[in-house]
Design a protein around this nucleic acid. Sequence first.
DNA 1: GATTGAACTGAACGAATGTTCAGATATGAC
DNA 2: GTCATATCTGAACATTCGTTCAGTTCAATC
Lengths: 195, 195
Amino acid sequence: MARKTGSHSQITGPRIRKAALKLIARHGFAAVTMRQIAAAVGVQAGALYLYTPDKQTLLFDLMRDHLEELLAAWEAEPKGDDPAEQLEAFSRFHIRFHLERPDAVFVANMELRNLEPENFVAIEDLRKRYEGVLVAILERGALHRDFTLPDSRLAAMAIIAMLSGVNTWYREGGRLSRERVERIYWNMIRRAVGA
Amino acid sequence: MARKTGSHSQITGPRIRKAALKLIARHGFAAVTMRQIAAAVGVQAGALYLYTPDKQTLLFDLMRDHLEELLAAWEAEPKGDDPAEQLEAFSRFHIRFHLERPDAVFVANMELRNLEPENFVAIEDLRKRYEGVLVAILERGALHRDFTLPDSRLAAMAIIAMLSGVNTWYREGGRLSRERVERIYWNMIRRAVGA
DNA sequence: GATTGAACTGAACGAATGTTCAGATATGAC
DNA sequence: GTCATATCTGAACATTCGTTCAGTTCAATC
């Protein structure tokens, strides 16, 4: 149902996702009720079940879609062959991509606890895949002596944590432009890996 | 009540806090019920209300106590006069202190959303005070030309995010000892600030 | 203009929530 | 041994939760 041609509204599905992301990011998954989400879309709670079998699946879909979009966007990103160039591309991409969808990022980072075990595994796999992208860049750079790193995996975790932190304080129109933030972070990362 | 001399059990209060921290860290504040906390302590739900006026206050107390302990512990920490020495002391202190109480850290970082506005402001103030410690170290180092930093506030956010990230992956008895992790992180930070 | 089928309502369901409180229990003081 | 007091139980409360579903609405099709 609601999955065929969609005579009038193939519009409600995306609206639910957007409203759910916003509410869950603000108040947390467990604290948000189906009635709140429905009200934000302008619909009764029962109508949501035309678009999702249950609340848990709604959360899972939001997180999975976000992470798949993240991986696909990185694949499509232009990046050089030089490890330092790739690391700069990754750093700037990470900041930009995450700043563009703060709600989805917040949910994907904070609601892992609320996933049922089987869903958790699937999301963890996607997260690991993204970490693997950075690990590969660092290991290649270390091999080519472009970077000086005692441990690529640890450096990858440190860099991702650092980059992700931008979302917690950056405000559009604030003291620093996004381009300036990207440059400063890239400089810190470049020095941290000894490039 | 329960706040006087405490003839038999001045022991239940701390036990409630520990159990609550553990459960909230695992499942999130909104997902944890007073009955679950009570069961973990071996008591009926009603008994909890001898120790806290309500669930919200319990959360607030957990977060405030953690942050006050954090600030007090830093005050008591031995630290040199040299900016680089201080930054190393801060980096190592942050990792060590946070690894020692992962549940409290997790709750303090993740449950800000579930604080009522007035409680949120109080906790935010404590967090800002801790950030201020690092900002001061960085600014002093930049002034003395010990560090090369375009922006101390931004660098402080980046460093704290990076250090806090350790809690998400570090496991006792894992591939790297805590001392080794501390050293590697300090090295990355040292290079990142140009010291 | 009758028929179809997706989109949605509105009311209901059992279960679970935070919180209260009268009473039971146990301890230490006198 | 009596009393006072701290601790806790067990049942109850009003409310809210996720979810279901019979029925209504309405645009598109024939």
